[in-house]
């Protein structure tokens, strides 16, 4: 057991220090002999055991004696720990590659490869980034009616639903990534503004009407708001200017936004979005699979195209 543990540990240390490479080679020889049921002729285990015992002896006879006595037990513990570590490391790497988090899809625990947790951060629903925490496993599109939301490429087989807030940092981080995904893939894209911060709530009816009046211009409108300063998005006169710049009839838009029909539609949309169990933005669904927080491009791409793979595209 000790040979295997030593080989693994020394191989890793050997990457950084040449002096350990010879030991790693010796350990490998020992492992090779053990697995082929031959005796280990390098006395590697004895050498390493003596080396540690000798070091301990300079500090404490008792510690050295205990180490020497329970060496085999310690070797087993180390072996099992190493196997467990390898398993969890492998799982972590897999998860990070697949979902952008070592802990799995939408899991926000500590990840050494993403120590600040950027790939899972969201702006919390309720108006403040610091509020509340949701259940990552409960986000869903089941029972959610998305027919009233802004959409394009409706005929496409795959669907990407982007629920985000114009003034949320993490949504703003995810937005260009999703745009890149849309450029490279034909998908039915649905966008919903979910204002976790109160200062952008007023955009909801304006956006609803902008989409209703001119769909191509609406997507430009969304682009503009995601590329604007957050402070500007909080000023109605700025948004009005954006609409004007895009060629919208401001009077018509404002009348539409003030209408009861629009207000009712916006509330209905809000109710539908709540059914997703959203607790923060961005919340992105790719063919029903919910992803909370801004993930690396590869995660979205892999999920989208693995679906395509299984569909035989």
């Amino acid at each position: 057991m000790f040979c295997i543990v030593s080989f693994l540990v020394l191989t890793v240390i050997g990457i950084f220090s040449a002096s350990y490479r010879a030991l790693a080679k010796e350990a490998f020889d020992c492992v090779l002999r053990r697995v082929t049921l031959r005796p280990c002729n390098t006395s590697f285990q004895e050498k390493m055991k003596a080396q540690v015992t000798g070091q301990l002896l300079t500090r404490s006879v008792r510690a050295a004696k205990l180490f020497n006595k329970y060496f085999e037990v310690l070797a087993w513990v180390l072996f099992l720990s190493t196997i467990a570590s390898l398993f969890w490391t492998g799982k972590g790497l897999y998860n990070f590659y697949m979902y952008g988090s070592c802990n799995g899809l939408n899991k926000s625990g500590f990840c050494a490869l993403d120590p600040t947790g950027e790939n899972n951060k969201t702006s919390q629903a309720g108006g403040s980034c610091a509020l509340g925490a949701g259940d990552e496993n409960k986000v869903t599109l089941t029972g959610v009616d998305l027919s009233s939301f802004a959409t394009k490429n409706i005929q496409a087989q795959d669907t990407v639903v982007f629920i985000g807030c114009f003034n949320c940092d993490y949504t703003r981080k995810a937005y260009p990534i999703i745009k890149e995904l849309l450029q490279k893939n034909q998908v039915n894209y649905i966008f919903a503004h979910y204002p976790v911060k109160g200062e952008t709530t007023y955009i909801l009816p304006l956006g609803y009407c902008a989409y209703k009046f001119d769909q191509p211009k609406y997507w430009q409108f969304v682009d503009r708001l995601f590329s604007s300063n957050k402070e500007d998005n909080g000023r109605p006169e700025y948004v009005q200017q954006v609409l004007k710049d895009l060629g919208y009839d401001l009077n018509a838009i404002n009348q539409c936004a003030e209408s009861q029909e629009t207000k009712t539609a916006v509330v209905k949309q809000r109710i539908e979005l709540e059914k997703t169990n959203i607790y923060g933005t961005p919340l992105i669904f790719i063919n029903q699979k919910g992803l909370v927080g801004p993930k690396p491009y590869r995660v979205y791409d892999r999920i989208l195209n693995s679906f395509n793979f299984f569909k035989g595209k």
């Binding site: 006395s43 004895e46 055991k49 003596a50 080396q51 015992t53 000798g54 002896l57 300079t58």
Partner: peptide
Amino acid sequence: IDHHQIALILNQSA
């Protein structure tokens, strides 16, 4: 007591 262990530890510790 293994003779190699004695020699190795004597070297390592002292």
